[in-house]
């Protein structure tokens, strides 16, 4: 298992653990999508997209895979431990 998958993908508890860095905002920008557009494609709320982009919430493994597939990249490319 890669280093990126060994970190807590189940969601960071408030105030604990270092956040993962991710490229979601950049990738979304490249597509010209708003947070609401991405949220609709991922079937999550806009606030969840915002929390992921700002590193306040680390997505679950299924959602991380969904994000990776949507942008046509591997999870390790998008998410990396800080």
């Amino acid at each position: 298992m890669s280093e990126a998958l060994r970190v807590d993908l189940g969601g960071r508890r408030p105030g604990t653990g270092p956040p993962m860095k991710n490229q979601v905002r950049d990738l979304r920008g490249e597509q010209g999508w708003s947070q609401a557009d991405l949220a609709e494609r991922l079937d999550v709320s806009r606030q969840t997209v915002n929390a992921i982009e700002t590193g306040k919430y680390d997505p679950s493994l299924p959602l991380a895979f969904k994000i990776a597939r949507l942008f046509g990249q591997s999870i390790e490319t998008i998410f990396e431990p800080d």
């Binding site: 408030p14 999550v44 709320s45 969840t48 959602l63």
Partner: peptide
């Protein structure tokens, strides 16, 4: 019907 972060918030 909530997504995973919303469920986390509700349950916490």
């Amino acid at each position: 019907a909530s997504d995973e972060l919303e469920q986390r918030v509700h349950l916490l």
